[in-house]
Amino acid sequence: MAGVVATLSLQVAAKLIGSADLGNPIAPVTLEKVVRIAAGTDALGKADVLWADTRTIAASSTENLDLAGALAGLLGGTVTAAEITAIVVVADAGNTNDVVLFGAASNAFNGPLSGTTPKHALGPDDVYLATNKKGWTVTPATGDILLVANSGSGTAVTYSIILFGRTVAA
């Protein structure tokens, strides 16, 4: 079956180290989560849309990623998503300004965020990962623009983005 097969992994290994008279107490925290995406559109956790790119935005500029019919597909054609199931964005470590996601002035796709003009800023070398096996609805012509902006003047920003989704609602 045609579609997307992927594994998204999150691993956190952290320690809180304190100080005390007779030693340094340690509180370990670990968390691991694997999200698997299977090929298809007929059920939750499946996808047939995959789009990825590394992009640069000029100083004080924005770009609109149209999720319903304007992005060039990786294997040809155009991406026309009915739902987005995962978003991965990595801001380049060499950026000076932030990469700002979401909050388009019109026809906004705000995915996991709520409100009229929500935004999420990624500083240099920051990572944004959001998943939703049920999918966030993409509505052509009224809710399909994923805004990406450069937060400031003076320098461009570079980022890598991967979008997963379905061409039909599951």
Rank of each mutant, 00 (worst) to 15 (best):
K46S: 10
G40K: 06
A43W: 07
L129G: 08
G77I: 10
K133D: 14
G135M: 00
N97S: 13
V35T: 13
E63Q: 11
Q11D: 08
R166P: 02
A149M: 15
A13V: 06
T62E: 14
L16T: 12
T85P: 01
D48R: 07
K15G: 08
A13T: 04
A156G: 02
V5T: 13
S106C: 01
F164I: 10
F164Q: 12
A141R: 06
T167P: 08
L10K: 14
V35K: 14
L10T: 09
V29W: 09
N95F: 01
T62Y: 14
K134I: 09
A20H: 02
L71P: 00
V4M: 15
T54F: 09
P118D: 06
T96V: 15
A108K: 05
A91W: 00
G152F: 02
V79M: 12
I162K: 07
A91R: 03
K33Q: 00
G123R: 03
A6Q: 01
E32N: 10
D144T: 10
A121H: 05
A13L: 05
T167V: 10
L67Y: 10
S9N: 07
A108L: 07
G76C: 11
A59E: 12
D92K: 08
E83C: 11
A52E: 07
W51T: 08
T30A: 09
V127I: 15
G23Y: 09
S9W: 05
T137H: 04
S153E: 13
A39T: 04
N95S: 01
L22E: 15
S114E: 02
I57G: 00
A13D: 14
L44W: 12
E83A: 08
A38T: 03
T139N: 07
Y128W: 01
A170V: 09
T117W: 13
A52W: 05
L44F: 14
Q11N: 07
T137V: 10
R55L: 06
T117M: 12
D66V: 05
A68D: 02
A170M: 02
G143A: 00
G3M: 04
S106G: 00
S160I: 03
I57P: 00
L8D: 06
H120Y: 15
L10R: 10
I87S: 02
G115L: 11
F102R: 03
T139H: 04
T56Q: 08
S114Q: 10
L71M: 05
K134Y: 03
L8A: 08
P124Q: 01
